[in-house]
Design a binder for these strands. Structure first.
Lengths: 194, 194
DNA sequence: GCCATTTTATACTAATTGGTCAAAAACTAC
DNA sequence: GTAGTTTTTGACCAATTAGTATAAAATGGC
């Protein structure tokens, strides 16, 4: 294949784009915002990613792939799958970067914003949240096999994704860990069923 | 005071505006959308409500006033405050109009959308969600006084607002009542503490 | 009836939007 | 080196945006 090489790394510029979309949402992010963050020119962006919607779809997939790869790795080897779930929620309530609080969950944000705006993009974000739910389910099943937990896995997984969606809004109301911890502890009591 | 009278009812046009903002969010709602829904001309709208942001603020207050008036009434006379909370969540999971699912919670949507866009509007929506949380708290205290429930009211109220924020996203993932009910039942088990 | 005041209607504006285009630059294959 | 292909660059465009200006219509006090 002949022709000039790309001067940018796809993973790097997609990461940059995801930060902008994550913070500002889909509609409020302008092409100008993206160009600046990705250090690209207009032609390059449209040549490489098509258009704004297509870029967003690729960003969603990129973000999801990274997240679920990490989650799978964490759960795969673990002998304490319940702990993996708990740690995940702890990270949400007490992130290294406190600015994460105002960003919430990328997929949850997308669902909220796009539900009445763009059904195709909404369905895509919904699908990613469902994948996250299925990760919870997998972890619970694993814990069950290890006799570390008992309960209805499907119902509990759906309960957990609801807690997930919830804390990602509530953390904007109360960005301080100490304001979130007691109710989070209450939320996760279902994980202590032996 | 001389001059021509208004030909529109403020409450009616604010209701119309709230439906548009609720469905499409703040940024994606155009003045054209508002004008069409409110059956107003541009001049009338800007004369009566200032600008888009000011209109949004008035809509948020209008929506909140109506909601909290209704909630206060429901709880005021009730001898079963726990039931009032449960009914509220049932209505969310099984609304008369199924299209409500994709609209979610007006305030939660606003928080998600505006957290990184407009701090002033976000704080306003956060404040309304806090008021809703304080309503939960009041109902729980009332139940406690009636010896119908025991527990930590503050923590449980914060837990409930998190469930509220959560189901208002999860309902977009699963608009069917039967897909939401089991996990909702699990969520509300804390209300059965005697 | 007349004047002051307000609402309504519509034309207009300046800025921003997502997206296109054409030419130059950089590269591969031969 | 040259032809052919791709990426980069930046100017350009049509549509849409929130908001303004101006004039006509409607109202109330006198």
């Amino acid at each position: 294949m002949a022709g000039r090489h790309r001067t940018f790394e796809e993973a790097i510029v997609l990461k940059k784009a995801s930060e902008v979309f994550w913070a500002k949402g889909y509609e409020s992010t302008t092409t100008e915002d993206l160009l600046k963050a990705m250090h690209l020119n207009k032609g390059s962006l449209y040549n490489a990613f098509g258009n704004k919607k297509s870029l967003f779809q690729q960003v969603v997939n990129f973000h999801a792939t990274n997240l679920f790869l990490d989650l799978d790795q964490r759960i795969k080897g673990s002998v304490h799958p319940i702990q993996v779930i708990k740690e995940l929620f702890r990270e949400v309530c007490d992130p290294e970067d406190p600015a994460m609080h105002e960003k919430g969950c990328f997929f949850g944000n997308a669902v909220s914003e796009l539900a009445s705006i763009d059904k195709e993009l909404e369905r895509m974000a919904v699908e990613k949240l469902r994948t996250l739910e299925s990760f919870f389910e997998k972890a619970l099943e694993q814990a069950k096999d290890l006799n570390q937990w008992s309960g209805d896995t499907k119902t509990t997984a759906r309960y957990l994704i609801t807690i997930w969606n919830g804390v990602n809004v509530t953390r904007r109301m109360y960005p301080r860990r100490s304001d979130l911890e007691p109710s989070l502890r209450m939320s996760l009591q279902v994980l202590d069923n032996k």
